[in-house]
């Protein structure tokens, strides 16, 4: 019973986090400053999420984060070149799976 109650509590807190801005601005109009900030939230969040994926890397230890960095650069290069998300992601992930096996 404790398990299910704890899971329910965690679910409610998560839902509350996701719903807060929608509840807060349900009746009132968002201030002008928010109009400015929300424009730059997606590019900033994507930057942070990419960097966050690398936070566990240990650059002092072989293979020095090389599979992650090289594969991420390959994804970016493929995306700039072909602009096909599937090719970029499958290609980069394939390269990563190869590199962690051979390096």
């Amino acid at each position: 019973m404790h398990n299910l109650e704890a899971i329910l509590a965690m679910g409610l807190v998560t839902l509350l986090c996701r719903a807060t801005p929608f509840i807060f601005f349900m009746k009132r109009k968002p201030p002008a400053v928010l109009d400015f900030v929300q424009r730059y939230i997606p590019p900033m969040i994507m930057t942070i999420l990419v960097l966050n994926s690398f936070k566990g890397l240990r650059f002092g230890l072989a293979p020095f984060g090389l599979p992650e960095i090289a594969s991420a650069l390959a994804v970016a290069a493929l995306q700039l070149w072909r602009r096909n998300a599937l090719i970029s992601i499958v290609g980069g992930t394939g390269l990563y799976m190869l590199l962690i096996r051979v390096l």
Partner: peptide
């Protein structure tokens, strides 16, 4: 990770 790179 690759998805986030593409989205970036």
């Amino acid at each position: 990770t690759a998805l986030f790179v593409v989205l970036l």
